[in-house]
Design a protein around this nucleic acid. Structure first.
Lengths: 116, 116
DNA sequence: GATAGTGATTCGAAAATCGAAGCAAGGGAT
DNA sequence: ATCCCTTGCTTCGATTTTCGAATCACTATC
């Protein structure tokens, strides 16, 4: 349970500045991180079920990510599984335009493929 | 120049479904990807300068990412450097709430640290 | 021709991720 | 109590990704 998650105000990979957004980009740019947040925004979920929903992500990485996100105060673990904190919910809301964007991306990718 | 970038409509890591948002989460969850988009949203930038701005990210990964993002039609290369396409600009706009969120995160992290 | 800048590749080393197996704890049910 | 099942989570060897310094091929300028 190491506290090696990026935090705002601390140098992170790719930025000595400590700018908060750089810490966020480091945290979110790790494999499965955004996916975990995405899944938890649907419903609180236990460890093994979370692993199932992410199509068998490795348990060791899941454990590491849950540590990081808990350390970043975006998650908490209760009896009914992992929850987003209010801060974590805000993050998911901040990321929510991604869904609409990705559909536009899909449309344009189809169009481009049709032209090739 | 492999075409191994995630694309909407195709199974990606963690999702066989081909749901566009899953492809987006896979693409964006690779190291440096969001940071590159973030830097390019400020100004078109050449390969070496991009590497400098990201505090010496390795050139091999930069090259791979630029391939992926170009293949995903989010970037193009012109004489004055790499540009976001309109689609890429939309993506950065979709991600822009992250900046405000990260500042809130920083505030709450400070508060929490003060309580400990 | 020499020098310097560019985008990009190579390749051995280091770090991150994978995944199957297993551990310890907590219920039920018998 | 024992057996059985599920849980959150760890271990560890194998695989994949990332690193980073050197280098290539090309262009422009002198």
């Amino acid at each position: 349970m190491g506290a090696r998650a990026p935090r705002p105000g601390v140098p992170v990979r790719g930025s000595e500045s400590g700018r908060p957004v750089m810490a966020a980009l480091d945290l979110l740019g790790r494999r499965w991180t955004m996916r975990i947040l995405w899944e938890l925004s649907q419903a609180p979920t236990g460890f093994r079920e979370l692993q199932r929903r992410c199509e068998r992500m490795s348990s060791s990485v899941l454990s590491t990510r849950l540590d990081e996100l808990t350390g970043a105060r975006l998650l908490t673990l209760h009896s009914d599984g992992y929850h987003l904190t209010p801060l974590g919910q805000d993050l998911v809301e901040a990321l929510s335009p991604l869904d609409a964007w990705s559909r536009r991306w899909a449309r344009e990718t189809d169009n481009a493929a049709a032209e090739d």
